[in-house]
Design a protein around this nucleic acid. Structure first.
Lengths: 191, 191
DNA sequence: CCAATTCGCAACAAGTTGTAGCGATACCGT
DNA sequence: ACGGTATCGCTACAACTTGTTGCGAATTGG
């Protein structure tokens, strides 16, 4: 009733290899042939565990993406700036803007999409917490647009990286930080 | 000294067909075989004119992307809101968020990248003009972060479309509009 | 010892981008 | 009129992808 057990290491090795190749070559250049070969396995071993490349990568990100630090600097502005810094570090990595290809593939796979969206949501928790702290300190009022703040902070940085020239600059981080800070400290969204 | 002339229609037909397929199926599903077939030509005809798929699409966008309207509503906020509305319309088109694949391919082709960046820069002109008008009206001071404002406005909408669920809502447009407006009307970026 | 399941491996299917080659066709300058 | 020249229509090929199928060998539980 139970056959040969699945090599427990193999799954880990495949994930680790995929993460390594992903971060060095980007998503589009990542091939399952490469992953399997470098993990000392066969492409079939990959397909026995993940239905497609996009699902493998979704799991890789879920496993290896470093967690978002929760800065807790004491001020809302300090926290926001820290988040911006962290995001900029990520988007300045060349492989990361190669993730656009992953996002494209994601649209064709509902399950992988759900996995990834859960990941994104989990990773925005520190920002939500930071804002909650600021509310508790009385620094700002309740924030009705809370679910959109993450987009407001990361969006400009991502956009600038995709369409613009070189790496993100400290000045740009300042601008985006102040833009969000101003929105949150305003008395209300509409004057 | 001059051979058979190039069919002047063919180039147009290929561009038009590519635009049609791009807007209905998205970038990733666009194949040059399809383009050629539907334009009544052969794949070789495409390669005789464009070195690669990404360059064809860069030219297609350059040719067919509708221009950004210049609203001139009389107030900075009105203009910003109009831009946000326009951008949301574009990003709510399903094919448009398929453009992430195009952006990915763009990284591997310097020439196409330049073409596209010139396009983006041209399309941000109305926003620059709107801000200049606001400065002339005395509504706001000079804007040092001018080249980043476009990212600030479009970034959150694009990010939200890529990572979030359904289409962009009017409330989100309000938030992003006010966020930029607040930044621009502030006395200075750093308090 | 037997059934079940994975593993290692080879081969295949279908699709993509991009290249090569060739006769036929149409144009330009002389 | 004619020769050079470049495009056109077409076929074929190369190299690569993702994803599937099949089968003997290995390894475990019952």
């Amino acid at each position: 009733m139970a056959g040969r057990p699945r090599d427990p290491d193999l799954e880990q090795r495949l994930l680790a290899t995929a993460w390594s190749l992903l971060t060095s070559n980007g998503y589009d250049a990542l091939t399952l042939t490469q992953v399997a070969a470098q993990a000392g396995a066969h492409r079939t071993d990959v397909y026995r565990r993940w239905r497609s490349k996009v699902r493998l990568v979704a799991d890789v990100l879920d496993t290896y993406l470093p967690p978002v630090p929760d800065p807790d600097t004491g001020t809302l502005h300090g926290d926001l700036r820290a988040f911006a810094q962290d995001l900029a570090g990520a988007w300045n990595e060349p492989w990361n803007d190669g993730l656009v290809g992953f996002l494209a593939d994601l649209r064709g796979d509902g399950e992988a999409g759900r996995t990834f969206r859960a990941l994104v949501s989990r990773r925005s928790q520190p920002l939500v917490d930071a804002i909650a702290r600021a509310v508790r300190r009385g620094e700002i009022a309740e924030v009705p647009e809370l679910p959109f703040v993450g987009n407001l902070l990361e969006g400009p940085l991502m956009h600038r990286r995709m369409f613009g020239g070189g790496p993100l600059t400290p000045e740009e981080l300042d601008v985006v930080t102040w833009s969000v800070h101003r929105l949150l400290t305003g008395t209300s969204v509409k004057p």
